[in-house]
């Protein structure tokens, strides 16, 4: 199967990807700065952008790296932070049915932003299969470039990066607000914050993460029994 790059489609995909060009570059740079701050260079940043490719998770990974977390904890944290991708992928199974060799990559590259973009219809007459693939690849290129640029700036130490770790806090605050505004179901949000806070007090800042996550999943499954109608509500 010899595939030539379709210029028209590439231009269409590039236009659609402009918001992520801005967003991923800035977020990528913030991540790169943070990673360099923890003592890892641009090769690490680029590799993580390539084989992890997830904003939130890569920020958390900086913490896992600097505390040299156990692999069990790492696996568990990754599962929880990325569990929403199960839902994204499931909802794309039908749409990505006949994509041949590109299929695994299309699923792998379904970040929040890419998921949103491939679900917006392109202009008439565009080859959707190629368009989705180009869009997915372009987004990941922006992300990897941002990651590496940030790590390079960070390791040059031309600027004092003390406090740059607040980028992670700010990212989570914004995502949290965004999710609060798009739902009427505040129970999971309250469970997340309350359980984490209680665990922080009981287990201390070093050890609360794992028990907090286990208890959050338990609590979410527990409350599910009492609120079956709401689980059918579709807000995506």
């Amino acid at each position: 199967m010899k595939n030539r790059i379709d210029k028209q489609t590439l231009i269409q995909a590039f236009k659609a990807s402009l918001p992520t060009l801005a967003g991923y570059t800035v977020m990528g740079i913030a991540f790169g700065l943070l990673l360099a701050n923890a003592g890892y260079n641009f090769i690490w940043a680029g590799a993580m952008g390539l084989i992890i490719y997830g904003g939130t998770m890569q920020f958390v990974a900086v913490d896992l790296l600097s505390t040299q977390a156990s692999l069990l904890q790492t696996a568990f944290v990754t599962f929880l932070v990325h569990s929403r991708h199960i839902f994204y992928s499931i909802s794309m199974i039908d749409k990505y049915k006949d994509r041949g060799k590109a299929r695994p990559y299309l699923f792998y590259s379904l970040t929040d932003e890419t998921y949103a973009l491939v679900n917006m219809p392109p202009e008439e007459g565009v080859d959707k299969a190629k368009y989705d693939l180009y869009l997915s690849i372009l987004n990941q290129i922006y992300w990897i470039c941002g990651d590496m640029i940030g790590a390079l700036i960070g390791s040059l130490s031309i600027i004092n990066t003390e406090g740059v770790d607040f980028a992670m806090t700010a990212l989570f605050i914004v995502i949290f607000m965004e999710q609060l505004m798009s739902t009427h179901d505040y129970v999971p949000a309250v469970i997340g914050i309350a359980v984490a806070f209680i665990c922080l007090i009981f287990f201390g800042s070093e050890n609360f993460f794992l028990p907090a996550m286990i208890l959050i999943v338990t609590a979410l499954l527990f409350v599910r029994q009492f609120r079956n109608e709401e689980t059918d509500e579709d807000d995506k």
Partner: peptide, 16 residues
């Protein structure tokens, strides 16, 4: 169900 309610709970925990 979990993939719907987990994101916001996990982000809340990450803020803490």
């Amino acid at each position: 169900y979990l993939s719907k309610v987990m994101p916001i709970a996990v982000i809340g925990m990450l803020i803490v």
